[in-house]
Every structure is written in C-alpha cells, then in structure tokens.
Design a binder for these strands. Structure first.
Lengths: 343, 343
DNA sequence: ATGAAAGCGCTAACAA
DNA sequence: TTGTTAGCGCTTTCAT
C-alpha cells in the first residue's frame, strides 16, 4: 500500500494518476487516448489500474481547450413536440454517439429571433458543428455561413448558397400522395400546408403538379402552422364552405391528426366522406384512428448524412445538397388496406 | 485606424480584444462578465467596441476549465418521442436557459445499460447537474449518489435514499381518474399500466384505491410498455376475453392513443361502449379523437423545481422530495363535455 | 518507451 | 480603476 490517496477535495486529475502509477502525465495521456505514442503493456496496465483505483475521469473542458474540439454537435429544431423532429433528434443522437459526439439539442419554437440566439449560444459553447432545421428561409442561413463553424441545413428541399443541405424530395413525395388520392377517384383535393419553414413551397408545388397532371381544377388551400392545432383549424375552415373537398392532403402528420379530430366533430367519416393523406410518416401516423396514409421521410438516413457532413468536413469545393426520396405508405385513411404496425 | 487586425487564422481571443482596446485582459474579463471588479464606463465602451469589431466570442471551454462550471445541465429521458418527455424537455430547457444554462438532452430508450452509459458520458462532459427520468427503480440511482455531480430524479412518486426527487402524486391522480369513471357508473375498470419505470406502482395503487373504495371487484390489468404500441396490444388483449371491461384507465396518453386505435378496429365506440381516461395530459390527449380525459402532470412546475434544485444546491441536509398535484381534465372519452383546445 | 514542459483561453487574487 | 500573472487539466513536441 503506497501513499497517493486521491486529493481530499476537487477532482482527480491526470497528474494524480501519473503519480500513483509512477509514470509521467504524458504516458497517462497516451494510455487514455490510445496514442499517439506507444506504451509498454506493463506500464499501460499500471496506469489503467491507477485510473480505476482513483476513479479518474478526464476533464472534457481541458481537453476541448487544448484540442479545440468539444466533440459536441448542435441540433436546432423548430419544435421537439413534433414527432418528426423527435425522431430526427433520436436518429441524430444515435449517429453522433456512434462517432463519439454528443448532441446539444435546442428548440427554436419556430421563433426566428430565438433561433438566432440559440445558434449563437451553440457557437459560444464551441460545438464542432451545427445542424439546423430552420423555420425561415433566409436570414438565419446568413448567420450560418459567417459562423466559422461547419453547419448543415436539414429539411431543405433544395440546395442553398454557401451551406451544405440535406433534405427530402418533398415535391415528388407530395405529388405521389396527391396522385394516389386522384387514383382513388377524388377530383377535389384540398391542401393543408405549413405557413413557414423549409419545404413548404415544394409540397405545395407537388400538390399542384398532381392536380394539374390529373386535369383537376386547383383545390382549396389553407395555410396554417405545422401543428395539430393548425390542422384542426384548417379542416374546420375547409368544411365550413359551400363546396367541401372530398380529400385532404396535409403537409405534416400532426396537421392530419388535428384534421381527423375536426372531421370527427363535423360528423364526417374517414375515408368514406373524406380521404386523408399526409406527410412525414412518424409513429403518430401509424397509430392514428384510422391509420394515416403518409409520405415517409427517411429520417435515419437524413440524420446520418447530416452528422457525417459535419464530422468529416470536405476540403474546399462548393456546398452540396443531398436529397432523399420519401416513400408513400398507404393506409385506411385514404381507403387502402391497413399496414402492419411496427413491432 | 490603429493596427491590431484580427488574427489571420484561429479564433479571436481575449488578448486580441485587450490589445485592440488598449487595456489588460483582466479588464476585458470584467466587462464580459460584468464583474467582479468595476470598470470605468469609458473603458468599458472601448472594450465593447473592440469585441464588436473583432467579432470576439468567449471560449466556453476555457471558462469552464477555469471556473469548474460548464453551465450545462444533463437531462436523461427514456424516450423523447413520448410527448410527456418532449414537453418536459422543453420546459427544462426554458427554465435552464433563463438561468444561463444549456441542456444536454439524451435518450436512454428505456435501456438501463444505455442509461448508465449516458449518465457517465454526461459526467465526463462536466455537466453541472443531472436530471434523470429513469426507467428503473434502483440501480442507476446508486450511480447518481456516487457521482459527485448534483442530481435530481424526475417523475418519481416518492422520495429516495440519497437523492433529491421531483414528482407527481400519481397515486392521487390515478385514484381521481378511476373514481371519476366509477362516478359515470362503470363497475369494471381495466388498468393498462406501464411495465417499468417510476410511478408505476403508484398509479396501480391509485387505481386499486378507487376500485376498492367504490366497492368494485378488482378489474383486469395489463402490464405493457408506455407506448402507443403497448396500449394497442393491451386493449386488444383486454377485449379478446370473455368479460370485457366497460372502462379503461391507461397509465400514459400514448397508451390511450394506442387503445383508441384498437377499440376502433374492434368496432367499439368511445365513450358509448368503452370509456377511456389516461395519465399525462399532453397535447396528444387534447387532440385525440375523441378528446381524451386525462390526468395532467404539471410539467412546467416540475421542470422549474428540478432545475432550481440543481443550480441552487442546498448545503447539507437530507435529500428532499417535491410532490406536485396533478389535475383531472375531463373530456368526451369518458362521456364528459369536450374541453376547449389551447390556442 | 518515457519524461519535461509549453501553452490552449480564461478568471481572479494580488499589486499598483 | 487597471495591470500582472498563476494556474485550471490536458495534449503533444521535443528530448532523452
């Protein structure tokens, strides 16, 4: 039993370990980081033992200061209560964790001012990269390019000047959804569309593509928030008018959920009186009553791509846009058969 | 126009600012931190100008290393896809932000092993405190007390040895819910209960309290996960038997959502054939079809309390338990009138 | 294979 | 009121 008890107060540092193991602090570093210089196996064992005995934990702040990397990524979402963003956050976190990064997840609550503030705060905390699911189309992006922190924009439909982007081909997805409704014989397909944020125009365009290709006159359109509440209000308004639609395409699962509620209150049955299809493809759509037909965003793949972009920064070259293809999942809400629920 | 351009590469540091403003680095610190020593207004203005011109941002890692505080809190939740935890996360984030703290939010996916790992990783990142909404009842808590990081357990029904706890009086809430169903004339109230995690026993106990006080025989009980899927499976099973219940109490909003779906598939109407009440009181319950009667957890107040506990550590004294009283929100799913939706 | 030591950017005690 | 400076814990270059 040698001396070298852990210090009475304060944290155990690398030099406590070094002293206990009878080596230099450099060697402790080599052991902890498995490099960059080799260490004799016997020495390494002694060091590991010292670490265990003393309960040593490396100080991440010191390491970050020294290396210039916190191994943290920032993720900004408009609202974590939206299952799409919840799923995205989970996927991002998992991918990041696999690569040794932690994720600082923050909520902009769809507020551009708050969004800006949060981005600044992430930068101040020295995150190694920022993923932004932005509310707005322009301003925050400017910040991003002048930030000196790698950034990627998530949920964008198309590329952006000066930033990497990752998104889904929302136009094609929306078009497929509406074409499917037309295939069911509907000739008046209303659109419930988000009032801001990325990909709104694309979804609207896809809806137009399909209605026009199908020779339909443009159906009614309501612009509202991406929430349950938005969908509820929109559906209520759509069916208050004189010529209600026979089908509904909602730009988010959440909006469709709200619409289902409104339709129920109006005594309209889905899909008999009104067919419904939506966009996102989260669990919430799977378990809605009736199960919602929905355009599934490949959240995991988008998350992987975004994280990879940040942690393997490409040298030079123009910013890139990755577009993923969404898949239409059909279900009873448009008159198709139910799909099996995930286990 | 003096010299002192920002350094060609690398970050602008406090000494760049000091040089530009013609002061010492200490003064820059005093200005940035508004203390601890006073600075002449003229000097402060010059410093602020320098900060602006050079685009200086304090390095959080260096500050953390120096002060021993990262001003970050960790929040561990079992699943961010559950709206209860999403709401909790938002509330925690807001309270923390107000006090100058950021929140590292992580997902344990209800996996005890992962939960442990995440807690360790939060400690390694030097968070100033940890909030844990734990999956399990015992083991992780042990970790917590030996962690040398302030911790508080969220979503607990009662106090715990050695840790601060914050929770809801789930037993009283469950009892109120079930008594309400009995008041509607139901004499066979099934319980769909979570299979692990905090507060499970309390909810079960509250259900028992009510059925026994009402002179009912104990209804059927299904133990399942806290998810939509769990509720769906449980309801399916409950109504496959010979003597189905006339009412259902589910231990989470999500379970109730799943149950609604199952009931619909079985051709049972709510509340005519089966009444449903659940626990949590999230937005999801508000917008379900039909609107769910639910026991609302005061998420914001619990979050406030948890954050406050961590950032204002009390000296000595035994750990404390804060219990909040939930409120029963009635709605059509049990036969009451709909409640107005939040704006 | 290992050790000594510089220095990352910041805060605050001490000096002036 | 302001300046000087030690040192937080770590990584890594340069010696040995």
């Amino acid at each position: 039993m040698t001396s070298s008890a852990p210090p009475p107060h304060g944290q155990v540092t690398r030099s406590d370990v070094a002293r206990y193991a009878g080596v230099s602090t450099a060697v402790v570093s080599y052991v902890v980081n498995a490099g960059p210089r080799p260490v004799a196996e016997a020495t390494a064992t002694r060091v590991r033992e010292a670490i265990r005995v003393l309960g040593y934990r490396p100080n991440a702040s010191a390491r970050a200061l020294r290396t210039g990397s916190t191994r943290m990524l920032g993720l900004v979402v408009p609202e974590i209560g939206n299952p799409l963003f919840a799923e995205l956050a989970v996927a991002v976190e998992q991918t990041a964790a696999r690569l040794g990064y932690a994720v600082l997840l923050v909520n902009s609550e769809s507020d551009p001012r708050l969004e800006r503030h949060l981005i600044q705060s992430l930068v101040a905390r020295q995150v190694d990269g920022i993923m932004l699911s932005t509310v707005q189309n322009g301003s925050a992006v400017v910040d991003l390019t002048t930030l000196a922190v790698p950034a990627v924009l998530l949920n964008t439909f198309e590329g952006r000047e000066g930033v990497d982007t990752v998104g889904v081909d929302a136009r094609a997805g929306a078009r497929a959804a509406v074409e499917h409704l037309i295939g069911h014989g509907h000739d008046r397909v209303a659109l419930i569309i988000g009032d801001s944020g990325e990909g709104v125009e694309a979804r609207e365009q896809g809806w137009l593509d399909a209605t026009r290709a199908g020779g339909l006159i443009d159906g009614p359109l309501v612009r509202t928030s991406f929430t349950r509440r938005g969908g509820y209000d929109a559906a209520t308004r759509l069916f208050a008018g004189p010529r209600p639609p026979s089908a509904l395409f909602a730009s988010s699962d959440l909006q469709a959920l709200g619409a289902l509620r409104a339709l129920d209150e109006l005594g309209l049955r889905v899909p008999d009186d009104v067919a419904v299809v939506c966009f996102d493809g989260t669990d919430a759509a799977d378990f809605a009553t009736p199960q919602l037909s929905t355009v599934r965003q490949p959240v995991e793949r988008m998350a992987d791509e975004a994280v990879l972009r940040l942690v393997t920064p490409r040298e030079g070259g123009p910013p890139r846009h990755s577009s993923f293809v969404p898949a239409l999942l059909t279900g009873p809400s448009c008159g198709c058969a139910a799909r099996p629920l995930d286990a």
